[in-house]
């Protein structure tokens, strides 16, 4: 492995010398997408700050976080999302080293299933809360809760749609440079959503119960 050309690293998995042309194209594209993600993080930071205030000051005689949050489903959701991050990593490795469409598609489908499970469980949780009379119209606290957790859920859902589109493109175009760089961008989007979820399960669910 004696490479003369050295590569700088961008976020996410690097194609490096396995596909130098894609690596070079990805460098700027991923930087651009990374900047977008930073802007997206501001969105979440603001929703967290809003939740921090509203969950304390906006209860308005209604239920408090401790009254209505439990840990069972969030724990399952956490594990689903975490494992899906890992399987996306395996998909990326399959794309990088094997140029292996079957293996890539397999791991992408697994990732999709796990993500869909996460969204499904979250939707179930939300409808359950609403049916118990704890909908977002109840109090400032619950408005902030639904907005923060729901925004994350919408992000995951759009990631799922994106994943479907890319699966179609893998079949239509094969693993060309466009498809590869798009998968690389979706990968860092997906990992970043998992990072945001760490904040949610810690500061919303665990803090709420503890």
């Amino acid at each position: 492995m004696n490479k003369i050309r050295k590569y700088s690293r961008h976020p996410g998995l690097n194609m490096g010398s396995t596909d130098p042309e894609t690596h070079e194209a990805a460098e700027t594209l991923l930087f651009g997408f990374w900047v977008f993600l930073m802007s997206d993080l501001v969105l979440f930071a603001l929703l967290f700050a809003d939740y921090a205030a509203q969950s304390q000051h906006g209860v308005a005689g209604g239920p408090t976080p401790g009254d209505i949050l439990d840990l069972k489903n969030p724990f399952i959701e956490t594990m689903l999302l975490l494992v899906s991050s890992f399987t996306f990593g395996l998909a990326a490795l399959a794309m990088k080293y094997r140029q292996d469409r079957t293996r890539l598609v397999f791991w992408l489908v697994v990732t999709f299933a796990l993500g869909a499970g996460f969204v499904g469980l979250e939707v179930y949780d939300f409808t359950d809360m609403i049916s118990k009379g704890h909908g977002p119209q109840t109090s400032g606290f619950l408005s902030a809760f639904f907005l923060l957790v729901g925004t994350h859920g919408i992000h995951v859902s759009s990631g799922l749609i994106w994943l479907l589109v890319l699966l179609v493109q893998v079949f239509v175009f094969g693993l060309n440079r466009n498809v590869k760089t798009r998968l690389m961008r979706l990968a860092i989007f997906w990992h970043m959503l998992d990072v945001v979820w760490i904040g949610i399960f810690t500061f919303v669910y665990l803090f709420g119960v503890a």
Binding site: S8, R9, H10, P11, G12, L13, N14, E27, F31, W34, S85, F86, G89, I188, H191, M192, D194, V195, I198, G199, T202, F203, L206, F207, A210
Partner: peptide, 28 residues
């Protein structure tokens, strides 16, 4: 809990997003 969350964020950055203080691009 806060400490655990911070450590876990760092783990995700390091092992999943492959951000590394020594080798990542300076712009990033």
């Amino acid at each position: 809990l806060t400490l655990l969350a911070v450590v876990q964020v760092l783990v995700h950055f390091r092992y999943f997003l492959h951000i590394d203080l020594r080798r990542s691009h300076r712009d990033e």
